[in-house]
Design a protein around this nucleic acid. Structure first.
Lengths: 360, 360
DNA sequence: CTTAACTGTTGAAACGTTAAAATAACTAAC
DNA sequence: GTTAGTTATTTTAACGTTTCAACAGTTAAG
């Protein structure tokens, strides 16, 4: 009934609590007789001793910078749910898969993961301080206000899909989004498309969408095409699922002028919403309009038609983020940027356009 | 640079640490002069004091049963990813949405959430003990081995989608899955279908799939139809995404005999995999075969064709789970079962069968 | 005018652990 | 045979908070 503490183990094994601590933590700076070690281990097993992490954290906090809570935080942007008026952090499966991968890898390294949603710009430095988190992984937001504090407290921080980080102070992990945007647009261009819509959520200078947008323009320029701002759909908050963009595209195509034959959506979830909306407007994918996405979430391969997309290995990205975190935690500070490769995955949502079809 | 502790605040305000503690925790058992309170609050603000949760947890652990870590655990079953050989806990968007909702509501009540994946049957009592978690929300698994310990330590536990709990010891939250299965099958029957496949992941006696299966049989019986075990697809581990079932169904239909005209998949994610597989086998949904799902994940409304499904309000379920947890945490133990209502959402994946079409 | 209860505050002990210094028991060196 | 150096272990003090008993000062009751 009563909680088993290190003292109980010590008494059972006939040694001091310190010795138990040394043995259980495999402290390399002390030497222990094999017999003592065995005796303590046996006692610990017998009593089913589980150390109190709170006490460990507190106890180890004496030496500044050596506090060990064995827990990291993962901060995920929170969006308002389209249906209910609730805030949801894992609306994009990209985040779910990423978080799963991080959690798995961290747990293998004996760390626990505290997840927290956040509104853009909201500070969560208090969580970090009050919980004495060993590190933080932040997705999609550059925590500008907290940066100084992070520096001051020297908390290992891994930034995912962020462009705000000036200089190489933090560990950063992302794809080459400009290249990715270029790859997507280029693929559509190669397939004969010329009027290509750009469909995106919020476009912010420190976000991935902005970079993918640049890449899209790069490809256009390479083909000698002028950029047409009327082809940009979205770009403001809350425009997440592409359905609205679909209606706008359908309307644009009906109103005459050169037809939009393809769309590049900056995330698969948007692409899927787009396809849905197009289908409701009576447009078929890929027969009437081609769609390419970004990310390759599980769902991209499962939907009908299969979504052609720029794949990034999300699980690998999560594992890598965790590994970078673990390295940083162990003092092997690999500050700088880690770039995850991408590749084009061709499925069924993009159709090759023949010359005459294009002119229609 | 140095950490601000309660002592610093006390010194700044000219009171004892105890007083600061009382004020900052709004302790109702003591009376404090408004002036003192104001002075302490000001000092705390000025120094940007953030209490150490580790110290709080440890300090409050003196009285058994009053330990406050202000953190709960959410345990999510982990499955092997279909593509990579990694373990993923949030493969089903149902979990993601649920977790998001729980996290949001818990955070509003000043609790943090530690997520952890788990293999079936794996114990996580150590996490609970070492972190002194205030409570645990467990999804989809009945933690039989840990039950005694939970009882002994009297840790508030909310079981989600579990049928293993004998008696009303724990708080439990789920849908009426038997009714849900009945609703799904009945809808297909009402639409004229008679050969209805049952497609599911693992069917275990303490899981929701088993209950949905019972409901499916109830509906069949109501229509005077014999149960045909050849219509059950899946039922074993790893058969998650319905694609394999699709191939089996297509094969069965080709080999003669009465044609399978509809399928009930026990989760939307399975239904979607099924639709994909069917489409690859050259079968169209709903023209050639109708499909009904379960859950109404975001994706059900976004895919093409829109998935007809048995909707449960997942966000509401998450909020409710969090609220039950908070009640339990506050001693208002509402042990027993909370049932979340369902409703049929008709979209485009089920087709009405005319008499002669059925006989084909 | 004594006793009892209340009000606002404090000091000391405790929570379970780790860090650093101390100790004791050997061994080796000169 | 003193000194110095290992090795295995212990003692003491901290970490930042809460709890509990105590206290002095005021008010109320009899």
């Amino acid at each position: 009934m009563k909680k088993v503490s290190i003292k109980d183990v010590a008494k059972e094994a006939g040694v001091s609590p310190t010795t138990v601590s040394y043995i259980l933590n495999n402290n390399k700076n002390v030497s222990i007789t094999p017999e003592t070690r065995a005796r303590v281990l046996a006692a610990s097993d017998k009593l089913k001793y589980v150390p109190s992490q709170a006490a460990k954290t507190l106890g180890s906090s004496r030496v500044m910078g050596r506090t060990q809570s064995k827990m990291i935080g993962v901060v995920i942007p929170q969006t308002e749910d389209s249906v209910d008026d609730a805030y949801i952090m894992l609306s994009n499966p990209f985040y779910s898969t990423f978080l799963s991968a991080v959690e798995y890898e961290m747990r293998r390294a004996n760390y626990h993961v505290l997840v927290t949603g956040t509104n853009r710009g909201q500070s969560y430095i208090e969580v970090v301080k009050s919980r004495a988190l060993d590190g933080v992984i932040i997705i999609g937001i550059y925590p500008s206000e907290d940066v100084d504090e992070y520096r001051r407290f020297n908390i290992p921080t891994v930034l995912v899909d962020c462009y705000g980080s000036s200089g190489g102070d933090f560990v950063s992990i992302r794809t080459d989004d400009r290249l990715g945007g270029y790859m997507a647009a280029k693929h559509l261009l190669e397939m004969g498309h010329r009027r290509i819509a750009f469909v995106s959520g919020e476009i912010k200078a420190d976000g991935v969408n902005y970079m993918r947008f640049q890449g899209y323009r790069d490809a256009l320029a390479e083909y000698g095409l002028d950029f047409d701002s009327e082809l940009v759909f979205g770009g403001y908050v809350g425009f997440s699922y592409g359905a609205e963009a679909a209606a706008a595209i359908a309307a644009a195509n009906k109103s005459g002028g050169r037809r939009i034959t393809a769309a590049f959506a900056t995330s698969d979830i948007t692409a899927i919403g787009l396809i849905k909306g197009l289908s409701e407007s009576g447009l078929r994918v890929p027969e009437d309009i081609s769609v390419i996405g970004f990310d390759d979430i599980d769902y991209a391969g499962m939907c009908v038609p299969g979504l052609t997309t720029i794949r990034q290995n999300i699980i690998e990205k999560g594992h890598e983020a965790a590994r970078l975190m673990i390295d940083a935690l162990n003092g092997k500070s690999s500050a700088g940027e880690k770039i995850i490769p991408m590749q084009l995955v061709e499925r069924a949502s993009v159709k090759r356009l023949t010359e005459n079809a294009e002119v229609v």
